[in-house]
Write a protein that binds this DNA or RNA. Structure first.
Lengths: 106, 106
DNA sequence: TGTATAAATGAACAACTGTTCATAAGTTTG
DNA sequence: CAAACTTATGAACAGTTGTTCATTTATACA
């Protein structure tokens, strides 16, 4: 949308961008976190218990993943009564995962 | 370690795929490795010394990165005399990086 | 209030990663 | 052959990550 799609030959990233790309890849590179992104790509927002049940992941462990992802800007959260709902903030991450998921060799 | 079990109906990625996606993200999530991919996206194949010079990365460290990426199927290599040339095998990785690199917020 | 429910936090620890250094192994050339 | 060059390898170590467990904070509601 923003930048025109460049042919591979013109792919040129600054050091700074490479670091940022690496950062995003790194914070997403985990099965549980990918699953979280997948769910939040479809659901707009889910509470920790929702996620914990759907993913079958221990509350505490999930919380650690969630707060990490929030800290790094991938998710955001807001409280609603007893529950805290998480939302996908950096939607571009979905594209990246989708892009990889579309690979035939996977 | 393993991806949480998810009801397939609600996802476009299977558990297995999520693990593979995570795997690829993980093996790419490093500035030096991204730079390697970037160079090999433009050059078809480069020797270790070429890469070492262009990236200003110590031979040994580079070698470790290269053999890791080869082991994981991202690169391939062949010898030509004294030199060993590395080639991008999993070209899809370029798309992923490009996808992220195109993000305006970066 | 007090109890239940929801989520975060922090300590502890194993496992993994990135890096450096020294050395080895393969190749060419004199 | 030895010497020079190119790349790989392995040990060591610091730093990071994933996980568990126990505890704490925040909210609701009886």
């Amino acid at each position: 949308m923003t930048a025109p799609a460049l042919p591979d030959a013109e792919l040129n990233l600054t050091t700074e961008k490479m670091e940022k790309v690496a950062f995003i890849l790194k914070t997403t590179a985990h099965p549980t976190r990918i699953a979280i992104v997948q769910l939040l790509a479809q659901q707009q927002s889910l509470s920790v218990t929702d996620l914990s049940e759907k993913l079958q992941v221990e509350q505490s462990l999930l919380s650690h993943h969630l707060s990490g992802m929030k800290l790094k800007g991938i998710l955001s959260s807001h409280r609603e009564g007893k529950n805290i709902y998480y939302t996908l903030k950096m939607r571009e991450v979905v594209d990246v995962i989708q892009c990889l998921a579309a690979c035939t060799f996977l």
